[in-house]
């Protein structure tokens, strides 16, 4: 199963995230994880998959440090989170497609950094949503889809192989089998509003990423949107001792730890 193949750096991230908690039991877990990663690296069958440019506030929460080309991610139903994920690829020149979301707020998307000239909307794909998604994933870099109704396993597998072949990233709003990671938005707190006064200005949220290869979810506190309509990492040390360092540093450290 090629999608399971891991690069050493990727697993090392997870190791670093887990290892920072301290304690003897966790140390054991870390060692097991690191060894697992090393075995995976030796056994892997695919080439390194490339990363799609991702917004820096979100990149280090994701496994591998960004959205991977050819992978599918499951996103919790929040339009703002979808826009935040699209902002990076769109700013870097990718075309983005949004399928099955008639309520997608165009104005907010532009404020978050999605280029409307390279945004395509298919609001009402009806029963053909899977065909439509597969068609536009052939040409568009990132495709967001809100599934109309459950898809069969065979269709999902076909779509997954098509994504891998074309190097497109799929963001599914809702549950999806065999995703690279699940990205969810919780603990939303708006500021600026009083009792009869003020107006919404900014929002603090926690973005949590759960991936198959890390037993513990990675999460970070973000301002989304911040008072200037952008996306900002609120607390770079939300994941203690890990988030402030670059992925490469963490990888090196993890390898040292293993021996």
């Amino acid at each position: 199963m090629p999608a399971l193949a891991l690069s050493p750096a990727a697993s090392a991230d997870a190791v670093a995230g887990a290892g920072s908690g301290g304690g003897a039991r966790l140390q054991t877990v870390d060692t097991v994880q690191a060894l697992q990663a090393r075995i995976d690296a030796l056994q892997r069958t695919t080439l390194d998959s490339r990363l799609t440019p991702t917004h820096e506030a979100l990149a280090d929460l994701l496994p591998d440090g960004g959205l991977k080309e050819g992978a599918a991610y499951s996103v919790s139903p929040s339009s703002a989170l979808v826009m935040a994920l699209l902002a990076g690829p769109s700013a870097a020149g990718s075309w983005c497609g949004v399928v099955g979301m008639p309520e997608f707020g165009v104005e907010a998307a532009e404020a978050m950094g999605v280029d409307l000239d390279r945004l395509v909307l298919v609001p009402h794909p009806g029963d053909q949503w899977l065909t439509v998604t597969a068609s536009i994933a052939d040409a568009l870099g990132v495709v967001v889809v809100k599934p109309g109704r459950a898809a069969g396993d065979a269709a999902v597998a076909r779509l997954a192989s098509r994504l891998r072949e074309r190097g497109s990233t799929l963001l599914v709003v809702g549950a999806w089998p065999q995703t690279e990671a699940m990205i969810s938005l919780t603990e939303s707190r708006w500021s600026g509003l009083g009792h009869g006064s003020g107006c919404l200005t900014s929002r603090e949220v926690t973005v949590t990423v759960t991936s198959r290869r890390s037993p513990r979810p990675v999460s970070g506190r973000l301002l989304m949107p911040d008072p200037e309509q952008g996306i900002r990492r609120l607390d770079p040390r939300a994941v203690p001792g890990a988030a402030s360092r670059t992925a490469a540093e963490r990888a090196r450290e993890a390898w040292r730890e293993v021996g």
Binding site: L121, V122, P125, Q128, V132, I136
Partner: peptide, 14 residues
Amino acid sequence: VQSLLGHEAVLTAQ
């Protein structure tokens, strides 16, 4: 996609 769903099904936004 347009020939599948019709001309107005694929939109760009301004």
